[in-house]
């Protein structure tokens, strides 16, 4: 493994402080592993040529045409503006959960993913925005391709604290109304909410012709329920305490949880939402690959 790729491992990254560093290391680690650079050349589609005028960016001069005609022509692209990527980060209390075998909490993991995506998006000359939410929108950075946007996004991420319960449906509706420009909406959440309400909210994004990618961030303990001892589980987000003999209840719990996952995936499929399951012990490249795949899909439409 190349040294830089080790930073794709959550347990390695967990030992490092600071989101900017984490974001850079994730992206560089990811880039070093792919053959084709994600930063240049494929984000803008050629449309026509126009004659050069002083002040134009020399990077866009078509030198082949100059060689044939001795005239300077610039390549004209179909859309001058970059892709808009809106990151929606769930900062509800449930995101604070960190299982016994996990290197970081779901919120930390989601922040790393969001920071890395922001870093990647901005380096692709695209615009990135960020909204943090629980039952309300707690922080918002409007989309921008300005290089200083990264600092704003990262600052907002670092400031985000999990203190309230979640209520995704109304939030998604409200944000869908705000995001007027078509783009990619990336949701980072554990999605512990009512599935139908949540899907209705996500459907609203689709209605606005956004490409929606759902990063479903879960702790391994939530997926496996590995507890052996009798445990008093204290519910996050104002849910009650319950005393449970985990081995006796494991099967039933897993059945309920997989039912929920099945409903969620089915809804996502139905509404053409990209569903990406992520475990907090999983490498980050899955998130970046999923984003890039979605971006390509967005550009094709």
């Amino acid at each position: 493994m190349e040294p830089s790729r080790k930073y794709l491992q959550p347990e390695v990254l967990a030992r490092l402080e600071g989101l900017p560093l984490r974001a850079r290391l994730i992206v560089e680690g990811y880039v070093s592993g792919v053959h084709r650079s994600p930063f240049h050349g494929f984000s803008i589609e050629f449309a026509e040529h126009r004659e050069y005028a002083p002040g134009d960016d020399l990077r866009y001069v078509d030198w082949k045409v100059f060689g044939r005609t001795d005239k300077f022509y610039l390549k004209q692209y179909e859309e001058e503006t970059n892709l808009v990527c809106n990151l929606l980060l769930d900062t509800s209390q449930s995101m604070l959960y960190q299982g016994p075998a996990s290197p970081m909490s779901k919120l930390e993991y989601a922040k790393c993913v969001a920071a890395a995506l922001g870093y990647l998006v901005l380096h692709q000359q695209d615009s990135v925005g960020l909204a943090t939410f629980d039952s309300e929108v707690r922080g918002l950075a409007r989309p921008s391709s300005n290089p200083s946007q990264l600092n704003q996004v990262l600052h907002l991420l670092e400031e985000a604290a999990a203190e309230h319960k979640t209520d995704t449906g109304p939030i998604f509706h409200a944000l869908a109304e705000r995001f007027r420009k078509r783009g990619i909406v990336i949701v980072l959440s554990d999605l512990f909410d009512d599935v139908s309400s949540m899907l209705t909210g996500l459907k609203h994004f689709r209605h606005r012709r956004h490409e929606v990618v759902l990063f479903h961030i879960l702790d391994p303990a939530e997926l496996d329920f590995p507890f052996r001892q009798v445990t008093m589980f204290e519910g996050l987000e104002q849910l009650p305490k319950v005393l449970v003999d985990p081995p006796a209840l494991r099967k039933a719990y897993l059945r309920e949880f997989h039912d929920y996952l099945r409903q969620l995936k089915q809804g996502c499929r139905m509404h053409h939402i990209d569903y990406v399951a992520m475990r907090t012990d999983q490498t980050f490249d899955v998130a970046l690959s999923s984003y890039l795949a979605s971006r390509r899909g967005w550009l094709r439409t």
């Binding site: 209390q93 449930s94 995101m95 604070l96 959960y97 779901k106 554990d190 512990f192 702790d219 939530e222 507890f227 001892q229 009798v230 445990t231 008093m232 589980f233 204290e234 519910g235 996050l236 987000e237 849910l239 009650p240 319950v242 005393l243 449970v244 209840l249 039933a252 719990y253 059945r255 309920e256 949880f257 929920y260």
Partner: peptide, 18 residues
Amino acid sequence: YQEAPWAAMRYLLAAMKA
């Protein structure tokens, strides 16, 4: 017993009920 926080409580409660 040990005490532990738990995020996926709604599914645990549903499992207990079932």
